[in-house]
Design a protein around this nucleic acid. Structure first.
Length: 302
DNA sequence: AAGACGAAAGTGGTTGA
DNA sequence: TCAACAACTTTCGTCTT
């Protein structure tokens, strides 16, 4: 990996956290990258079979496990079928058997969970047109969630949606809750809840969304030139400096900036057009627009 | 007639007692 | 758990081009 110093504080003391798959700055704690390339496995394998099952390369995961429905329980009383004591040698053997039995059971239930989740993740990510490395990061994050036992009692699909949402934000690839909701079929508030939950439990550092991320997307839908985009991004930058965006929906800010920029450059779009692609109302654009105009001292004739 | 504007009331989610 | 609250939406009347 090329990164040798922290982009924030320039410290060269970087820590690789193999467990979490993160590259962390040793002095300021910034997570420089998640899902780093040169990463030890985040799992431990207890035997060759598990190693093969857990490795990410290799054959596709199968939904059916050979032992499905055929589980042998080993009880905890060291007696044979007639109730007679079992020799200590046998007892030791049984102890080991129980230990492994438990471990394998846990491993397979995790596998089942992951099989469903990763299939869903792949489906949603493809639907949203997310690149493979994002998918990988999302899968890694999901595995962390599974390992921390955050899934139990929750709907797998909503956790998957939340993980995708989080990863998109962390990586600056804008996907709104709306889009993810549409492609996953999970309600927005459900995704939001799951997202907040995993964010808290896994200590995710998610930067607040910079409206600039949405500019390109909206501009493309509106057939606006690069000039307009640049202008809009410049406006947003100024707005950020003035603290105008905190608490505001990033899409609304992006939409207003684009609206203003389009008028300044002479490729005017109506409020309604911008509002539609941004998924906000004209009123919101007007409100943001008013704020921007006032705070930045813009003299725009529309 | 279409677009822009803004007031007022309503909505869903967060926060803090 | 409940009320206050902020952001945003819906709706609607008015003004401008």
């Amino acid at each position: 990996m090329a990164t040798t110093e922290c982009p924030e504080c320039k410290s060269k003391k970087l820590i690789r956290d193999y467990e979490k798959g993160e590259l962390i700055c040793g002095s300021c704690g910034l997570i420089i990258s998640e899902g780093i390339e040169d990463m030890g496995p985040e799992w431990r394998a207890f035997d060759a079979e598990q190693k093969e099952k857990r490795a990410r390369g290799g054959a596709p995961i199968k939904f059916m496990r050979p032992n499905k429905g055929l589980v042998t329980e080993i009880d905890k009383y060291n007696r044979d079928i007639r109730g007679a004591k079992i020799s200590s040698k046998k007892q030791a053997q049984l102890y080991r058997m129980r230990k492994w039995h438990k471990r394998v059971s846990i491993a397979t239930s995790m596998e089942r969970n992951l099989a469903i989740a990763l299939a869903e993740l792949d489906r949603v990510a493809s639907y949203l047109g997310l690149p493979d490395d994002i998918k990988e990061s999302a899968a890694l994050l999901y595995r962390r969630a599974v390992k921390e036992e955050l899934i139990r009692g929750r709907v797998i699909e909503s956790i998957v949606a939340a993980v995708i949402y989080a990863i998109c934000r962390i990586n600056g690839i804008p996907r709104t809750l709306d889009e993810i909701s549409k492609s996953s079929g999970i309600e927005k508030k459900e995704i939001g809840r799951a997202y907040r939950f995993i964010k808290a439990e896994l200590n995710l550092k998610v930067p607040l969304t910079n409206p600039s991320y949405y500019v390109q997307k909206f501009a493309t839908s509106l057939n606006l030139s690069g000039d307009v985009q640049k202008k809009a991004i410049a406006l947003i930058k100024k707005a950020v400096k003035k603290g105008l965006i905190s608490g505001r929906g990033p899409t609304g800010v992006a939409a207003a900036a684009l609206y203003i920029a389009s008028a300044m450059v002479g490729e005017k779009r109506t409020q309604k057009e911008v509002a539609d692609v941004a998924g906000v109302t004209e009123v919101t654009i007007r409100n943001r627009y008013r704020e921007l105009k006032k705070e930045l001292g813009l003299k725009v004739n529309l």
